[in-house]
Structure formats: C-alpha cells, structure tokens
C-alpha cells in the first residue's frame, strides 16, 4: 500500500513518520511511505490540521499523533 505523511515538516510530522515506520515493521506490511510537505497538496486532501496520514489516497487521520496501538489498528483496517 501507499502511505503518505502530510505535514510541512514540523516535529509532530516527523514523530508520525517514525511511528508509521514502526507500525509497518510490527505488522509486517509491505508499504511505501512518502512525505508530502507542500501546502497546496496537503490542503488538496481536505486536510487543515497537520500531521495527517493518507493510506492509498484516503485520509485516515488528521490533526493528532496516534498511539502506537491506534496506528496499528488504522493500518490493519486499511490493509484489509
């Protein structure tokens, strides 16, 4: 699956990116993770509060950092 981390590059965005990599490793998923930092694209997804998580072009989380368990749930649901 394709995972995108939306955010201009603040501390929270980096935290979310790190947590996402951890969750992917824990779940043994094959996923490509990339960062989207330019504002028009971020807002284009309908996202105003960063950081946000996009899985296969669908926004699944915005405006907060999830716990590791919540993130695993989100990715499991999206992968199914």
């Amino acid at each position: 699956m394709l995972i995108k981390i939306l955010g201009p590059g603040c501390a929270n965005c980096h935290t979310l990116e790190r947590l996402t990599h951890d969750a992917i490793a824990d779940l043994n998923l094959t996923a490509e993770v990339s960062s989207v930092t330019d504002y028009p694209t971020i807002v284009g997804y309908g996202v105003m509060s960063t950081p946000a998580l996009v899985v296969d072009d669908r926004v699944v989380l915005a405006g907060r950092i999830p716990t590791a368990a919540q993130l695993r749930d989100l990715l499991t649901t999206a992968a199914a």
Binding site: Y39, P40, V43, G44, Y45, G46, V47, M48, A52, D57, R58, V59, V60, L61, A62
Partner: peptide, 8 residues
C-alpha cells in the same frame, strides 16, 4: 488550490 476529497 482546489479542495478534493472529503475533509476528515
């Protein structure tokens, strides 16, 4: 900027 997708 155009808004596409539904805002969460």
């Amino acid at each position: 900027t155009t808004l596409r997708g539904t805002a969460v």
